[in-house]
């Protein structure tokens, strides 16, 4: 199987869809000159459409095109740019089908890069999937491997609902084996990246790889970690998470987004509702603190869950004792000032 990067795999899914279906087209800022320059001649400027810096305009136009038979793929660059089109995404894309009693369908895919940890500071570094998970009517995917992004994007383009695709920028140049042909990775199907018996770690986006690193370290300490990548947050594979925690009795959720009302919180709540009797320790959430992303690398560097921090949280969860709960449960791996 050929080895290609995450970003190449994403493009191959879109290009294949465009070859198969004339209703699929791409729209965004500078798409002709950069990412799609090699296929511009094949598809032409109508279907590889450069836009002004006008997110509400072109995302709204994508919605209108989707309502009338097209299947647009919107390139929204940074995830924070979606806020400029919040009304379009929330009030039109997400709600049209429901508000209009099933008359509408909005088959639009909106891709955006989630570029935290890159010194880009507060306006380019958000991890906003939790915000959009609050909006019924949207689907949300967070692919973490080249194989997954190709398969999930095909599923997204074929889906008749609006799909937001959040792509961890740290994964962009990561290579992996990806089949040449088109294939689907289904929505709502988590990937158990590693089977374990002592602790379940559910990790989102770039935290999946860090959790796997932590699991390899902990293996030498005879702690067996099961790592689950939900891959899609809406729909969420609740069954896989609950089933895993019923087996291991312990859960650590790792999410680089702020913790308040986050997907990590949702997963913690889910387990407390559906696997409470199986829990041998409190659920731990490892998230970013509730603060805008600062510029200084010395400040941003302590914000996100690390492999070491994840390992520490897993150890603490395993050492938890009901007889001495406060002493055994180690604090989250953040400086006190950020907690």
């Amino acid at each position: 199987m050929p080895q290609i990067t995450y970003l190449e795999a994403a493009k191959s899914a879109i290009v294949a869809a465009m070859r198969r279906d004339p209703h699929v087209f791409v729209m965004g800022e500078d798409v002709q000159g950069f990412y799609y320059s090699d296929v511009l001649q094949e598809f032409g400027p109508e279907r590889i459409r450069d836009t002004p810096i006008s997110e509400a305009g072109f995302i709204g136009a994508g919605i209108g095109a989707a309502l009338t038979g097209m299947r647009p793929v919107i390139e929204a660059a940074f995830s924070t740019f979606l806020y400029s089109a919040m009304d379009q995404i929330v009030n039109q894309a997400a709600k049209s089908r429901y508000m209009f009693g099933g008359q509408a369908s909005v088959p639009i895919v909106v891709r955006s890069s989630v570029a935290y940890g890159a010194g880009l500071a507060a306006h380019h570094s958000d991890r906003p999937w939790g915000i959009f998970a609050q909006i019924p009517g949207l689907k949300i995917i967070v692919p973490t491997t080249p194989y997954d992004i190709k398969g999930l994007l095909k599923t997204a383009i074929d889906d008749n609902n609006p799909v937001l695709c959040f792509e961890d920028a740290a994964l962009g140049e990561v290579s992996g084996e990806v089949p040449d042909h088109e294939y689907q990775v289904p929505f709502g199907a988590a990937d158990t990246k590693r089977v374990g018996s002592d602790v379940t770690v559910v990790a989102i986006a770039g935290c999946v790889d860090r959790s796997l690193q932590a699991a390899r370290v902990l293996e030498h300490e005879s702690i067996s970690v099961e790592v689950i990548d939900p891959r899609t947050l809406v729909p969420l594979d609740r069954g896989a998470i609950v089933q895993s925690v019923r087996k291991t009795g312990r859960l650590v959720v790792v999410d680089p987004a702020p913790g308040m009302c986050s997907v990590a919180s949702e997963i913690a709540a889910l387990v407390s509702e559906e696997a409470f009797a199986y829990l041998r320790a409190p659920v731990q959430r490892l998230t970013a603190p509730d603060v805008p992303v600062p510029f200084s690398p010395q400040l941003e560097g302590v914000m996100y869950p690390t492999a070491e921090g994840i390992a520490a949280a897993v150890r603490a969860t395993c050492n938890y004792s009901r007889r001495n709960p406060t002493a055994a449960c180690a604090p989250a791996p953040l400086p006190a000032a950020l907690r």
Binding site: I59, G60, G64, T68, M70, P72
Partner: peptide, 20 residues
Amino acid sequence: GIVGSLMPVAVGAGLSSRLR
């Protein structure tokens, strides 16, 4: 219910006519 909200959607319907 949101003032101005459907104007970009109308542009998209026009774009769709063009592309189809």
